[in-house]
Design a protein around this nucleic acid. Sequence first.
DNA 1: CGATTGACCTCCG
DNA 2: GCGGAGGCCAATC
Length: 119
Amino acid sequence: MGTAKRSQQSSPFAERVYAIVRRIPPGRVTTYGRIARAAGLTRSARMVGWLLHEAPADVAAVAHRVVNRNGELTGGWAWGHPSVMRALLEEEGVTFVDEYRVDLERHLWEPEDEFSERS
DNA sequence: CGATTGACCTCCG
DNA sequence: GCGGAGGCCAATC
């Protein structure tokens, strides 16, 4: 396979993010910052979102469980419309405190912060 | 090759 | 407690 590369250079940080996202249980939600911190890069939450945009199908299948620090469906438009992601979350039993805001106090899932480095 | 944007967050005033 | 600015890495124009 000569053409087995492109931009999918599977960065160590990317694989770490994908691994964490895949470990997100149903009915549970996490935040980009939480994943970024668990991956080792606390201030690189932006890249997490971009990675999810280029993420494989298995990761994208659970990407709707990833929300921002506010619990808002910031990436809802990635599915075409936030209502789609909201429906998926509701299907898993996730409640919403607002139209597009999940109850983090109720479904916030914290990844294994083995690599979490504090300042 | 340089500048801008991006599924965002943290720090500082 | 709230607001603004910086940061971080990569992709796209």
